[in-house]
């Protein structure tokens, strides 16, 4: 197996979520099976431009399609946004270690996300809702900069109507009609009750937000080892060779992107790492 060699994937469906965020639903053309864990990522390749690491939102469902939600921020992702259904890209993966969804079975799950409705966290929610009976109460805390940034707004509404699911939204800046709270995501921790001894938390978003949330969760009584975070770094090889994703001794691509809080708390928040 050559870990660098992409496979061909056809864009079956393309959804424009916001002016800069889009979703690609992909079919691998080689017909070979593909399995992944929530929280893992693929390297997507745009012909003649290059590769980018993108978290897997969903896949392996009835239609067998892989879903990636992508923000156009660089050459590759901007180029990908211009692609249409029927066009092809390269794909290799899955890579890395995902969320501890097996360890979370039978427990209450708290998902804390920031930014644009963080894709890695959506994979957790999909998994739990698909296997609802295996998990306890699900609390989703979502913070965004600006109320208009929230994508999947209808999804959040649908999730909040599921049994034993709470969704709390907060925006730094509200806009007319915003029904969530205003402020930082950490402000929401005062508003939730939590069975800390039986809960597990999964965090994803800007590092400052994750740091503050991990500290707040510890204060609520969660064991540090029950708090998990998804990290992002420059990634080029995805297999622990190119060195770009190093975070101290850890290779984020291979040892992460999901880490237990005690494994990264030494360097998280230290500028330059």
């Amino acid at each position: 197996m050559n870990p660098y060699l992409p496979r061909e994937a056809e864009i079956v469906e393309r959804i424009q979520e916001t002016p800069t965020v889009f979703t690609l639903r992909l079919r691998l053309t080689d017909g070979q099976p593909y399995g992944f864990e929530a929280g893992q990522f693929n390297m997507l390749y745009l012909h003649g431009v290059g590769e980018v690491p993108i978290s897997i939102v969903a896949g392996g469902e009835a239609d067998g399609l892989l879903t990636h939600t992508i923000r156009a921020v660089g050459r590759v992702t901007r180029g990908m946004m211009a692609l249409r259904a029927g066009e092809r890209i390269g794909l290799r993966g899955p890579f890395g270690r995902g969320w501890p969804l097996a360890a979370a079975e039978g427990r209450e799950v708290v998902v804390v996300t920031g930014g644009l409705g963080c894709a890695p966290s959506v994979s957790i929610i999909h998994h739990i809702l698909r296997h609802r009976e295996r998990y306890g109460r699900l609390t989703i805390l979502q913070g965004v900069k600006h109320a208009d940034d929230l994508i999947w707004r209808t999804q959040y509404e649908a999730w909040s109507r599921q049994p034993e699911v709470r969704v709390l939204l907060v925006a730094d800046v509200a806009s007319p009609g915003w029904q969530g709270a205003v402020g930082r995501v950490t402000a929401l921790f005062d508003r939730i009750e939590l069975d800390a001894a039986h809960a597990i938390a999964m965090l994803c978003g800007p590092e400052g937000m994750m740091l503050a949330s991990a500290a707040a969760l510890e204060q609520l009584g969660l064991a540090a080892g029950d708090i998990y975070l998804s990290m992002e770094r420059n990634m080029q090889c995805a297999v622990g060779h190119c060195g770009h994703c190093q975070f101290g001794a850890r290779f984020v691509c291979r040892d992460g992107p999901v880490f237990a809080w005690p494994d990264i708390r030494d360097l998280l928040g230290v500028r330059g790492f």
Partner: peptide
């Protein structure tokens, strides 16, 4: 061991070489 990857498209745009 650090290395960077780069994609080099051919002039006709039909093929590309991926190098490190």
């Amino acid at each position: 061991f650090c290395h960077a990857e780069q994609d080099l498209p051919s002039l006709d745009g039909q093929s590309a070489e991926h190098v490190r």
